[in-house]
């Protein structure tokens, strides 16, 4: 499976490689979608996923280019290779979408997510929570005598691992941002 990169307006030759190499294995892909920053654009993207029955594992969105009116939507999705190709092509069809990048196949990329964990406990458990937070480079952003709120950044697996460790130590609330991702290197 090769990269799909939609750049509207390219006329030289197709940017798609659509020679099929289909299998039934479910793959997880991180897509970066650059969209016009206008009302309703997120609804278009989400409506596409719900209307056509695609999965959204995580989704983040924020304006990234104020003068160019562009927002970046990072979507983690899963499906068979054929479904992933369809998702990218369908995203590319949305008029407000400028570019679609499949970070999973376009070369190495970095993924980060921010999460906050509220952990309540006393005695040994409280000490252990603080010690593990240190190992995971999580910061304490709020504390009372009976609770800590940790802030942690990392790839989703690291955050999952931290959540598992905190659970028996009194985890009472979690907030996660979803994944933001960029390709490695200069381009």
């Amino acid at each position: 499976m090769s990269a799909l990169k939609i750049k509207k307006g390219s006329t030289s030759h197709s940017a798609y490689n659509l020679r099929p190499t289909f299998s039934d294995a479910i793959e997880r892909h991180t897509l970066a979608v650059l969209v016009e920053n206008e009302p309703g654009v997120l609804a278009r993207v989400i409506g596409l996923f719900s209307g056509r029955g695609y999965n959204i594992d995580s989704l983040t969105v924020a304006e990234v280019d104020h003068t160019g009116h562009l927002s970046r939507i990072t979507i983690v999705t899963s499906g068979t290779p054929q479904v992933i190709e369809q998702i990218k092509a369908q995203l590319g069809r949305i008029v407000s979408v400028h570019e679609v990048h499949d970070l999973t196949v376009e070369g190495p990329s970095v993924e980060r997510e921010l999460a906050m964990f509220k952990v309540a406990g006393q005695g040994d458990k409280r000490v252990e929570a603080l010690r593990l937070a240190d190992i995971f480079r999580a910061n304490v952003v709020d504390s009372t005598l009976e609770s800590f709120t940790f802030e942690i950044t990392g790839n989703p697996e690291k955050i999952d691992a931290f959540a598992e460790l905190m659970r028996p130590l009194g985890l009472i609330e979690v907030a996660r941002t979803g994944v933001a991702a960029l390709p490695r290197g200069e381009t």
Partner: peptide
């Protein structure tokens, strides 16, 4: 002309978008 039509239902050996 629509890339999403290619391989949506039937696998294509020679896809031409245009």
């Amino acid at each position: 002309i629509d890339p999403s039509s290619i391989n949506k239902v039937i696998k294509t050996d020679l896809p031409i978008i245009g």
